[in-house]
Amino acid sequence: MEKGTISVKLVNEALRAAHHRVDVAPLLARAGIAAASLGDGEARVSAEAYGAFWLLLAEALDDEFFALDRRRMKVGSFACLCRTALHEPTLMRALRAVTRLFGVMLDDYRPSLRRRGAIAEIRLDEPAQPGPAFACFALWMIVHGLACWLVGRRIPILAVELRGPMPAYCDDYRVMFSETLRFSRPRNRLLFDAEVLDMPVRRHPAELGGFLAGAPANILVRYRDPRSLAERCKAYLRRRPPGGWPTLDGLAGQFCMSASTLRRKLAGEGQSYRTLKDQVRRDLAIERLERQASCAELAGELGFADTSAFYKAFKKWTGCTPGRYLARETAGRGPSGDVARRSAVTPAVR
Rank of each mutant, 00 (worst) to 15 (best):
R222K: 13
A34W: 09
F211D: 03
A25E: 15
R281N: 00
L27P: 03
I142F: 09
I219F: 07
G39P: 06
L262T: 02
V104H: 11
T307S: 06
E207F: 01
P226C: 04
S260E: 14
Y169A: 15
E13D: 12
I157Q: 06
L191T: 03
L86M: 09
L139E: 11
L276S: 05
G39Q: 07
T5G: 09
L28I: 01
G243L: 10
F137Q: 05
P186D: 04
P167G: 05
L61C: 01
N12F: 05
E126R: 10
D107V: 13
P167T: 02
R291C: 06
A120G: 01
V196C: 02
G214F: 00
D225C: 11
F53D: 04
R187A: 15
L237E: 00
S7W: 10
E269K: 00
G323M: 08
L61N: 02
S77Q: 03
T247R: 03
G32V: 09
L28E: 00
E195C: 08
L139N: 09
F183T: 00
T180M: 13
G243Y: 08
W149M: 10
V11K: 04
R30V: 12
V160E: 04
Y50H: 12
Y173T: 02
L68V: 03
Y236L: 15
G334I: 10
R341N: 08
R115I: 09
A58Y: 06
R227N: 10
Y109F: 15
E329N: 11
D62M: 07
N188V: 05
P322N: 00
A97Y: 00
E88V: 03
L191C: 12
R71K: 09
P200I: 02
Y50G: 10
K316F: 11
L289D: 00
A34Q: 10
A213S: 13
I33H: 01
R163T: 07
L289W: 01
K265I: 11
C170F: 11
S46R: 08
F65N: 01
K277P: 04
D125Y: 09
I33G: 02
A128G: 11
M73V: 07
V45H: 04
R96V: 12
M166A: 12
L237S: 03
R189A: 12
I219N: 05
S112G: 15
R174F: 01
A133L: 13
T180R: 15
F78E: 05
K265A: 14
R44Q: 11
R328S: 14
K234H: 03
F137A: 13
K316D: 13
F53Q: 05
R70F: 08
F304D: 02
R72D: 12
M1R: 08
Y50P: 07
L86T: 04
L55H: 10
R93M: 03
W317F: 11
E269I: 02
W317I: 07
L150G: 05
K265N: 15
L248T: 14
A348T: 01
L57N: 03
G145R: 01
P111F: 05
R96Q: 14
A206Q: 12
